[in-house]
């Protein structure tokens, strides 16, 4: 659908925003992106998982294994305090970027 380059630039922001509401496990995050984008965005393990690990390394998310009754053991990721701050900044940047790009690419403005 979208080019890998375009996706790559926004993966972090997507992951952070999905973790804003509550902790989620890795598979759920991938599924959510797919369903909320109406199938236009899909992430496979090889692109999603290393990004999650990077966010963890940067201290923006934290993870722990959770075993709920009747469920299998899964790793849940949640947003840390620095992660919340980073999400706010990235969100603002994204909006500004999109508006700027729009300014340029709208036919009327060219």
């Amino acid at each position: 659908m979208f080019s890998p380059a375009l996706k790559k630039g926004s993966t972090e922001l997507l992951l952070l925003s999905l973790l804003e509401a509550r902790p989620r496990h890795g598979y759920e995050i991938g599924k959510l992106i797919e369903s909320r984008s109406g199938g236009k965005l899909t992430f496979q393990i090889p692109s999603l998982y290393p990004t999650l690990k990077r966010l963890e390394e940067q201290g923006l998310v934290s993870s722990r294994w959770v075993e709920e009754p009747g469920e299998r053991r899964r790793k849940f990721y949640s947003l840390t305090r620095p992660g919340k701050k980073a999400l706010g900044e990235q969100r603002a940047h994204w909006r500004e970027y999109v508006e700027t790009v729009n300014l340029i690419i709208e036919p009327g403005n060219a």
């Binding site: 496979q44 393990i45 090889p46 998982y49 290393p50 990004t51 690990k53 990077r54 963890e56 390394e57």
Partner: peptide, 20 residues
Amino acid sequence: NHINDWDQLGDDLLKNMKSR
């Protein structure tokens, strides 16, 4: 077949988990 380039994934993980 979901993951086809294991080496690439390994590299990416190592790169992203420097402190570990």
